[in-house]
Design a protein around this nucleic acid. Structure first.
Length: 751
DNA sequence: TACATCCTTCTTTTT
DNA sequence: GAAGGATGTA
């Protein structure tokens, strides 16, 4: 691709509307990009177009997304289109962009530029603390609720003093308490020189509000702003975008109101619905052609979403042929549901040209993954879970991160309280309370320790432990002031604090596992070092940006394209992705839609959008599955089919032939009544074996065998090989049996 | 103060 | 059916 002549730019790759979205570079532009309409392509082409055709310098462009993965993908594609020029474009998540701005300017607001970033876990801890201090019973006012309300206020840019004016809180008889908790929470954060996630947005907005010269410097720099997933922006994000684009007004927002699924986190769907009101001169381009899904899948999804009222009326046009109908399946319980999903995957791999990485299973809540995992483990189906218990949430990782944060930000009480007795130093609840008192709410933790030691309130074992900790921290800060590689430094932290030694001394499986996780953390460090020009920054800055990076990772960011395995994730995580085959598990009332949405029309619409997002991820095949009873909280409850089943256009959906139960509103495509459960070997009810068992007469999953006592059956699992192999066989007359090959006396039935 | 054991609550969804 | 908190014991 060379820049000669006029028409070098590959506009011919795009349809007419896409071209318009790419080339209308000046003024506000709303791109309504339906599911699968080539949104990412439009955004990347638009950036490339600005650079190459409009000769916009790369540093004058800011593109914001919601996840690091989306940002990375965008950057990669822009670089692919434009070469190294694209590298200098500022492509980032909202939160990372704000951190970058704040690290540079926040001292103007009187907050240290080495501020810690508190994640939800840290914030909740502080809130619990505050509520305890206020003598409020957690049952009267649960910390989670307070945390939710504070977050909501911050997202709406509402300070404690004005919180009472917010409708919902106003009606709450505990309002005074909530407002007071908000104030105290803020006080604690400021005291710790810490910002929570919502603060990152809030303080950026405030910075721009209160320091116009800072805003101006960004306005002068950023001539073109692009926002992806605009339907999920909250009020704070919206205001920041407004501030930045007010002067140049070259703001392009891309999104789809039907895919707004973060209302609970403050996302304000009116941002996208009212864009034309906010920017009266805005142009609107609609991308209405779906290139991703087959006709049946798209029609089914469109039929569902048309039941929503608060949306822009639109119809997506299927470019692809009809394909197969959407399959609905109902099993007896979540185990049968999992078996069906596994069997279907193996079946599709055998008969059609799919591989494991073509499949994804979506569910509403993380707890659903266990049942599916169980089946996959049993059937040897390789899988990757995105999300769930996060690596960075493990105790040992959090402890280590707390040490690192405390080293950078000595005021960080949150981190201090986490590690003060990890490893155990004889500083229990009582001693910690004394140290806190000594700090009297204004000293740093280390100053407080010194005060407590001096006054003799802390003595004996606790005093020695506290002294050791002080010494280790001072020593580590010294180390960091000389030029030390980051990984070496982190090893030094584990060593000087005695953390690693204490774990090793425990010599339990759990402790060994924790040590292993710490090693894995060092791999993350190494990755970071090799992806950054390490020697350009001093160790302090490097550690700081490393911590920034890992505190802002999303679950989705861990998803790699490499390897071949089925992907398991929540519906929320699935936004923005696509897979040839999609299973949506747990299509039941109170799960999807979730029970918290019952009786809340706005929430119910969001559940419907969530279902829509899931369905529109599928390219070739879509399976909607449910279980008639499901174990939640360890006990079985009967379920009823999701209302969304009845909202699907009947002509695009059919009941799967393997279903063991019927679903109201879903037509049975097969006249025969399915065999009662337990009477038949489910289709594909065998297991995947990565390496076929060697040997001519080796038993393999799927083979028919005869047993002297149980009769004929089908081999499901083969573990090991030769005579010692342990095999699991399903006998219609005897059920599942585990046998040792050489004793079982099995006769192979050739077909 | 540390550790074990019991109990309770909890499950949406996440930058 | 786990994780965090409360309670009990050394």
């Amino acid at each position: 691709m060379k820049t000669t002549g006029k028409v070098f730019f590959p506009l011919e790759d795009l349809n007419r509307n896409q071209q318009e979205a790419v080339t209308r570079s000046e003024g506000p532009l709303l791109v309504l990009a339906g599911a699968g309409s080539g949104k990412t392509r439009v955004i990347t082409y638009r950036i490339a177009y600005l650079l190459q055709e409009r000769k916009v310098p790369p540093y004058a462009i800011l593109a914001v997304t919601f996840t690091n993965k989306a940002a990375a993908a965008m950057r990669e594609r822009v670089i692919g289109l434009t070469g190294k020029e694209g590298r200098a474009v500022w492509i980032s998540t909202f939160h990372s962009a704000c951190v970058r701005i704040l690290r540079q300017h926040i001292e103007k607001l009187g907050i240290s530029r080495h501020f810690s970033i508190f994640d939800d876990n840290d914030s909740t801890r502080v809130i619990k603390d505050v509520l305890a201090e206020m003598n409020i019973d957690a049952r009267v006012l649960p910390p989670r609720r307070v945390s939710y309300l504070i977050g909501r206020a911050k997202n709406a840019l509402v300070e404690p003093d004005h919180m009472a004016e917010q409708g919902e809180v106003n009606r709450d008889h505990l309002m005074d308490k909530i407002v007071q908790a908000y104030r105290m929470y803020e006080e604690r954060l400021r005291n710790s020189q810490a910002l929570d996630f919502d603060d990152l947005l809030y303080f950026t907005w405030r910075l721009f509000e209160e320091k116009p010269e800072v805003l101006q410097s960004y306005e002068n720099l950023l001539h073109y702003i692009l926002v992806d997933e605009y339907q999920d922006t909250n009020h704070a994000q919206y205001q920041i975008i407004r501030q930045l684009s007010a002067k140049r007004r070259n703001l392009c927002v891309v999104g789809d109101d039907d895919q707004s699924i973060y209302r609970w986190r403050g996302a304000d769907i009116t941002n996208i619905l009212d864009f034309e009101k906010d920017f009266p001169e805005a142009q609107v381009v609609t991308l209405g052609e779906n290139y991703r899904s087959t006709g049946n899948i798209l029609s089914a999804a469109s039929g569902l979403i048309s039941k929503n009222t608060g949306r822009k009326e639109k119809q997506l046009l299927a470019i692809r042929p009809d394909g197969q109908k959407v399959s609905a399946y109902a099993g007896m319980d979540e185990r049968e549901e999992g078996d069906f999903i596994a069997a279907s995957i193996l079946e599709l791999i055998r008969h059609e040209n799919f591989t494991f990485k073509d499949f994804s299973v979506f569910y509403r809540i993380n707890a659903q993954s266990r049942a599916i995992e169980d089946t996959f483990l049993r059937m040897n189906i390789p899988y990757t879970i995105v999300g769930g218990v996060r690596f960075y949430d493990r105790k040992e990782i959090r402890d280590l991160i707390s040490y690192l944060r405390l080293i950078l930000n000595p005021a960080d009480w949150g981190s201090f309280e986490r590690i003060v007795n990890a490893p155990t130093r004889g500083i229990g609840k009582t001693s910690l309370e004394k140290i806190r008192k000594a700090g009297s709410g204004s000293l740093s933790p280390e100053e407080a320790i010194q005060a407590a030691l001096k006054s003799g309130t802390v003595k004996g074992k606790a005093a020695r432990g506290a002294g050791d900790l002080l010494e280790a921290l001072v020593m580590l800060r010294n180390k960091l002031s000389i030029k030390i590689p980051l990984d070496e430094f982190i090893v030094a932290v584990l060593d000087e604090t005695g953390y690693l030694r204490a774990l090793q001394a425990q010599a339990t499986d759990e402790a060994r596992n924790r040590v292993e996780n710490l090693h894995e953390f060092l791999v993350v460090v190494d990755d970071f070092m090799s992806s950054n020009l390490t020697d350009q920054k001093n160790p302090v800055e490097l550690l700081a940006s490393f911590l920034d990076q890992i505190s802002l990772v999303a679950d989705l960011d861990s998803l790699k394209d490499e390897g071949s395995s089925v992907t398991l994730m929540t519906l929320h995580t699935a936004k923005g992705l696509e897979f040839p085959v999609v299973f949506m598990a747990g299509m039941e009332e109170d799960l999807l839609p979730h029970y918290r949405a019952q009786g809340e029309p706005a929430e119910m619409e969001e559940e419907r959008r969530l279902c829509y997002v899931g369905m529109t991820r599928a390219k070739e095949r879509l399976f909607l599955t449910m279980a008639r009873r499901r174990r939640l909280f360890g006990q079985y409850d009967n379920t009823s089919p999701s209302r969304f089943f009845t909202e699907l256009p009947p002509e695009n959906v059919e009941l799967h032939s393997d279903t063991t139960h019927s679903i109201p509103g879903i037509a049975d495509a097969f006249s025969s009544i399915p065999a009662p459960p337990g009477q038949k070997v489910a289709i594909g009810d065998f297991t995947y074996v990565p390496e076929p068992v060697e040997g001519e007469d080796g038993l393999r999953p799927g083979m028919q065998v005869r047993h002297p006592m149980f009769g004929t059956g089908q081999v499901m699992i083969v573990e090991g090989s030769g005579g010692d192999a342990r095999i699991t066989v399903y006998f219609p007359r005897g059920g599942k049996k585990k046998l040792i090959a050489k004793y079982a006396n099995l006769e192979l039935i050739m077909d």
